[in-house]
Computed example of a mutant assay.
Amino acid sequence: MAQVCLLGDPESGLRYELLSRETAREALATYDLREPYENSLALDTVSIGAAVSLLNDLNWYLVRFVRTALVQSDSVSETEWLSRDLATAIRDGEVDPEETGTFLKVYGVEDDHIEDLAFVEREGEWTPEREGYDEVLVVRVTEAEFGG
């Protein structure tokens, strides 16, 4: 099982933009859609591969209306998310899931609103500080995303 969470661009209403367009609406029709955060859309898929395939199907819309696309799979981590690029690399066998988790992007959540906090390179055991946020999202990213 894998989850997908799309964080909408602040300039657009993500749910409206996706569901008002026939192709995106059809691609999402079989999923139970949730909105865990302000201007977000989340759903469950059967695997990382299915999650990446869905993101690829929605790419035209993601480029226009999504700030970031996240994938979470218990087979990699029960608490941390993967960037789309890292999920794709794992699906394609380019990266071993066991070798992820060094390069991170951290988001703070307050009142269901998500803010970018920082990129962090993890060494050893590391727990993100909440820094006054209700929740902290930890996203594993590729080395290229970390350096970019």
Rank of each mutant, 00 (worst) to 15 (best):
S83W: 02
V52W: 10
E145G: 06
A50S: 14
V120T: 02
G108P: 08
E78Y: 04
L43C: 15
F65H: 12
E145N: 05
R122D: 06
R64L: 14
L137A: 09
S83H: 03
D111P: 01
R67A: 09
A42I: 08
I90L: 03
W81P: 00
G93K: 06
D85V: 02
P128V: 08
D96E: 13
T142D: 10
P97T: 02
D92V: 00
A42T: 11
R84H: 10
V46G: 13
E94M: 10
T79N: 13
E135K: 13
A87F: 11
Y133R: 06
L55R: 05
T127R: 09
D111E: 12
E129Q: 11
N39L: 11
D44F: 10
D116Q: 08
R122Q: 14
E110V: 10
Q72K: 12
E80S: 07
D85C: 03
Y107S: 02
D92K: 07
L55N: 08
E80G: 02
E145L: 05
E135W: 06
Y37V: 11
E110N: 13
I90G: 00
W81F: 10
A144G: 02
T68P: 01
N56V: 13
R91E: 11
L70T: 04
R64W: 03
E143C: 00
T102K: 09
E80I: 04
V139C: 14
P36V: 15
E99F: 01
D112R: 12
E125Y: 11
E80F: 05
A144H: 05
F103V: 00
N39D: 14
A118R: 12
V109T: 04
A42S: 15
E129P: 02
A89S: 12
E129I: 04
R64G: 04
L86P: 04
E94T: 10
D112F: 13
P36Q: 12
E125M: 07
A118E: 15
I90T: 01
V109K: 04
E94P: 02
E123Q: 08
D85E: 13
T88M: 07
T88W: 01
G93S: 01
L82D: 04
S75K: 09
R67Q: 14
S40Q: 12
D92Y: 00
E129F: 07
D92G: 00
D96H: 06
N39M: 15
E143S: 10
Y107P: 02
R140L: 07
S77H: 04
A87I: 05
L117V: 12
R122F: 05
A42G: 12
Y133N: 15
G132A: 07
R34Y: 13
I114M: 11
F119K: 08
V66F: 02
G124A: 09
V109H: 00
